[in-house]
Amino acid sequence: MLAYAGGDLLAFETLYRRHRGTLYRFLLRSLRHRADADELFQESWSRLVAARERYRPEAKFTTWLLQIAHNLVVDRFRRQRPQASPEETETVLRSLDAPESEQPERALSEFEQRRRLQLALEELPEEQRIAFLLRVEGGLGLEEIGEITGAGRETVKSRLRYALARIRARFQA
C-alpha cells in the first residue's frame, strides 16, 4: 500500500487481486444483495484509494480494508432497515449456489450443509454475522475484529459465541 501511495500502480493491482474476493464475499454475505455488495465493494476501494496517503503500516492491510467495508455496511444497515424479506434472501442464496458435480448423495449433503450455513448466516444479528464473517472470511483475530467493530475483546468473543450457537441450532433444525 505504501508503494501504491508512492505512485506504484502495480502494487495496487497486486493488493487488489489478493483481497478483492475476501472483500466482495464479506460484503455480499453481510448485505445479502448483490447490487449493494457491488456498490459497496466499489465504494470501499474508492475510499481506500482516496485515503492511500493516510495508510500507516501499523495496521494490517486486510484490517484496514475490512474496516472501511464494515463502516459502509453499518451505514447501509442503518439506512435499509427493515432488512430484506426471506424471499429475497432465498433468491440470493440460490444465486450463490455452486454447481453440483459430486456424487448425488454427497452433493446433496454438501449442498444442504452449505445452504443451511448460508441461511444461518442470514438469520444472525448484524453484529454477530459481521464478527463471524470477519473471522472466517477475513481471518482476523479477536483484537482485530474488536478494532474494526469498535467492540472490546470479550464483546467480540461473546458475539462469536452467540453466532456459533445460532448456526449450530440451524444445523439441528
Binding site: L9, R20, G21, R25, S46, A98, R114, L117
Partner: peptide, 27 residues
Amino acid sequence: ALYRRLPKAEPPRRLDRSVLGEAARAV
C-alpha cells in the same frame, strides 16, 4: 471449513475495471 466450501463469489469484471481505473486515475 464448511464456510470455505461455500461458493466463492467474485466481483464482476466491470468492478475490477472500474476500481483499477480509478486507482490509476488517482495515481
